[in-house]
C-alpha cells in the first residue's frame, strides 16, 4: 500500500505545481508608477489596437461606434464567444477598472477578479504593448460613453469551458517576444509594434496549431481559415501578397484594393480604425507586410 500513498502524494504535487505554473498572473502596481496618462495618445492607441471593431454593438453606425457595449458574437471551433461590455459604465462595463487592471488584462489575460480570459481577447498580441500606451488607453476609455447593457455569456462547451486550462495555453503560447527579429529600421520597428502588439493582425492572418496557438516562422501571416467556418483570411506573404507598398497604404487609408473594390467583412472595420492613424503609421504597417515572409 505504501506505493499507492507515494503515488497519491506525487500526483498531488504535480497538480499543485501545475496549478501554480498556470495561475492567472498579475503585476504589482509599481510597474505603472510615475506614468502620466495622455488621453490623446490613448485615442491613437485605441484605434491602432482596434478595440471598437469587436466591442462596438452589432451593426454599429458612426454614432454608436464608440459605445463599447459589446454583444457581437464570434463563432470558433472552441465555441461561440460574446464580446463583453467595455464601456465606462462602472457596473456593466469597465469604468471601475484601474490602469493596472487594464494592464493585467492586456498583458497577462487576467481579469480584475483573477480569472483567465479566453484568448479570443487577443492578449497574445496585446502582451507586447508598452506600459505607457496602456496607461494612455485607460485614460481615453474613461472619456467614452457608459452603457448599461449586461454582458452576454459565452457559449463554450466542455472541456473548453474550464478556464483553469487556459493557464496551460498561456504557458505554451503567451510571450511578449517579437516575432519579427533582427536589426530593424525605425520604420519597421514602428510597423512591428503596430502589427504584432496593437493591430493584432496575426490573430486572423496567421494559421494556428491544434491547440489554437499561432504558428510563427514561415507560417507567420500566411493566411488562415475563418474560425467562423466560412471563407478564409488572406495570405500576406509573397507571392500571394502581390500588392505594392503604396497599394497597401491606399488600402489602409481609403479601403480601396488595387482593383478599386473595397475592404470587406471584418477588414472594413480595421480600415475604419487605421484611417484615424497618421499616414506614417499606415506606411509603417505596409513596410512590415512587405518585409514578410519570416524565416
Amino acid at each position: 500500500m505504501r506505493w499507492l500513498v507515494r503515488l497519491a502524494i506525487l500526483a498531488l504535487i504535480v497538480v499543485a505545481v501545475g496549478l501554480w505554473l498556470t495561475r492567472p498572473r498579475t503585476d504589482a502596481p509599481d510597474l505603472l508608477a510615475g506614468l502620466v496618462p495622455d488621453a490623446d495618445n490613448g485615442e491613437q492607441v485605441f484605434h491602432a489596437a482596434g478595440c471598437a471593431s469587436c466591442h462596438q454593438p452589432e451593426k454599429a453606425t458612426d454614432e454608436t461606434r464608440l459605445v463599447l457595449s459589446g454583444g457581437q458574437r464570434f463563432p470558433s471551433p472552441f465555441g461561440t464567444f460574446a464580446a463583453p461590455n467595455i464601456s465606462s459604465d462602472p457596473e456593466a462595463g469597465i469604468g471601475g477598472w484601474s490602469a493596472l487592471d487594464l494592464w493585467n488584462a492586456l498583458h497577462h489575460g487576467t481579469s480584475p477578479e483573477g480569472r483567465h480570459y479566453y484568448p479570443v481577447f487577443p492578449y497574445g498580441s496585446y502582451t507586447r504593448m508598452a506600459p505607457q500606451d496602456v496607461v494612455d488607453l485607460h485614460a481615453f476609455l474613461e472619456t467614452l460613453p457608459a452603457d448599461p447593457t449586461p454582458n452576454a455569456a459565452h457559449d463554450v462547451p466542455f472541456p473548453f469551458s474550464m478556464r483553469t486550462a487556459l493557464g496551460g495555453w498561456k504557458l505554451l503560447f503567451l510571450n511578449d517576444d517579437w516575432v519579427m527579429q533582427g536589426d530593424l529600421s525605425p520604420q519597421l520597428e514602428r510597423g512591428r509594434y503596430l502589427v504584432e502588439a496593437m493591430g493584432h493582425c496575426a490573430e486572423c492572418h496567421s494559421p494556428r496549431n491544434l491547440l489554437g496557438g499561432l504558428k510563427t516562422g514561415a507560417d507567420w501571416m500566411s493566411g488562415a481559415p475563418n474560425p467562423a467556418g466560412r471563407g478564409s483570411f488572406p495570405d500576406l506573404t509573397p507571392p500571394e501578397m502581390s500588392w505594392s507598398e503604396s497599394d497597401l497604404v491606399e488600402y489602409f487609408t481609403s479601403g480601396f484594393t488595387p482593383d478599386f473594390d473595397t475592404a470587406g467583412g471584418h477588414m472594413a472595420l480595421v480600415v475604419e480604425n487605421l484611417a484615424h492613424l497618421p499616414e506614417a503609421d499606415r506606411a509603417a504597417i505596409a513596410a512590415y507586410v512587405k518585409a514578410l515572409p519570416l524565416d
Partner: peptide, 12 residues
C-alpha cells in the same frame, strides 16, 4: 480618397 472609399465601403 478616404471619404470616397468610406462611402463605397460603408455600403458594402
Amino acid at each position: 480618397m478616404q471619404p470616397l472609399g468610406g462611402a463605397c465601403g460603408g455600403c458594402h
